[in-house]
Amino acid sequence: AKPPKTVTVKVEVTNADGETQTRTVTLTNLPKDLKPGDTVTLPETGQTARIVEITP
């Protein structure tokens, strides 16, 4: 079996106070056609994050 493909992405997350924070997260099994501006759900927090940058 192939190991899951991990991708490092820079995302913007809005916290409970309405502040936008930029975080770098490593995600696995992202859709192939994901692009900056799309939103993903962070598995560890369940927060919705907007992708700023994808590092191949």
Rank of each mutant, 00 (worst) to 15 (best):
T55A: 15
I54R: 02
T24M: 12
G18S: 03
Q47F: 04
E53W: 02
A16G: 10
K32S: 15
G46A: 05
I51M: 02
T45A: 04
V11A: 03
K35S: 07
L30E: 14
L34D: 00
K35D: 02
P56E: 13
P3T: 10
K35A: 09
V40W: 08
N15F: 09
N29V: 07
G46V: 02
T28I: 12
P31K: 07
T20E: 03
E12Q: 13
P56V: 13
N29D: 15
K5W: 12
G37C: 03
P3K: 08
P56C: 10
P3A: 10
E53F: 02
K35W: 05
I51A: 01
R23N: 05
Q21G: 07
N15L: 12
D38F: 03
T26Q: 12
A49E: 00
E53R: 05
A1H: 14
P56A: 13
G46C: 05
V25P: 00
V9R: 00
T22A: 06
K2E: 15
E44P: 06
L27N: 06
Q47I: 08
G37I: 00
E19Y: 09
V9S: 00
G18Y: 02
A16D: 10
E44W: 03
T24W: 11
G46I: 02
I51K: 00
Q21R: 08
T14F: 07
T8Y: 06
T22Y: 10
T20H: 07
T24E: 13
G46Y: 01
K35I: 06
D33N: 09
V52C: 03
E19C: 14
E12R: 07
V52R: 03
P36A: 08
T39P: 05
T24R: 03
V9Y: 03
I51D: 00
R23L: 15
L34K: 04
K32Q: 14
T48P: 11
E19K: 14
T24G: 01
R50P: 01
E19F: 11
T22Q: 09
R50H: 05
D33H: 09
T22W: 05
T48Y: 02
L42R: 00
T45N: 08
L42W: 05
K10W: 07
V11Y: 10
T14C: 07
R23G: 04
G18N: 04
L34V: 12
K5D: 15
T28P: 15
P43M: 07
T41E: 08
K35G: 07
V11S: 00
Q47A: 07
R23S: 10
T20L: 10
V9G: 01
T22E: 08
P3D: 14
V40M: 11
V52L: 14
D17T: 10
T6R: 10
E19G: 10
T14L: 12
V25K: 01
T24Y: 08
P36R: 05
E12G: 02
T14M: 14
D38A: 05
T8K: 09
T45Q: 03
P4I: 13
G18C: 03
Q21I: 14
K2G: 15
L30R: 01
V52Q: 03
T22F: 11
P4W: 00
T24L: 11
N15K: 06
K10N: 04
D38W: 03
Q21Y: 09
P31V: 13
D17L: 10
N29A: 06
T26C: 09
R23V: 15
P31D: 15
T24S: 05
P4M: 04
L34G: 02
L42A: 01
T45C: 05
P3N: 09
A49M: 02
A49G: 09
T48F: 04
T8H: 07
P36F: 05
R23P: 01
L42V: 05
V11D: 00
T8F: 06
I51W: 00
T39C: 08
K10F: 06
I51Y: 01
E44A: 09
G18M: 03
V40G: 00
E53L: 04
T41L: 12
V25W: 01
R50I: 15
K10L: 14
T6L: 12
T28A: 12
Q21N: 08
K5V: 14
P43G: 07
E44N: 08
T28N: 07
Q47S: 04
V9M: 08
R50K: 12
V11F: 06
Q47W: 01
A1T: 14
E19A: 11
L30Y: 15
T39M: 14
D33A: 08
V40T: 03
V11K: 00
V40C: 04
K32M: 13
P36W: 04
K32V: 14
V40F: 13
T20M: 11
T45P: 02
E44R: 06
E53I: 04
L34W: 11
P36D: 03
T6C: 10
K32W: 03
Q47H: 06
T55H: 12
P3G: 11
T26S: 11
T14W: 05
A16H: 10
P43A: 07
T26E: 15
T28Q: 11
T41K: 09
V11W: 03
L27M: 10
T41C: 05
V13C: 05
V52S: 03
T14Y: 06
R23I: 15
T24F: 06
P31S: 14
T55L: 15
G37D: 03
L42F: 06
P31E: 15
L27I: 15
V11L: 09
L27G: 09
K10I: 15
E53D: 09
D33M: 08
E53C: 09
E53S: 12
T8N: 07
N15G: 11
E53P: 01
T48D: 06
T39W: 14
N15R: 06
E44L: 08
T8C: 09
A49P: 00
G18H: 03
T6G: 13
P31N: 11
T14D: 06
P4F: 01
L27T: 04
G46L: 05
I54F: 08
T48L: 13
L30F: 14
T45W: 07
E44H: 11
E44V: 09
R50W: 02
V52K: 05
E53T: 08
G37Y: 02
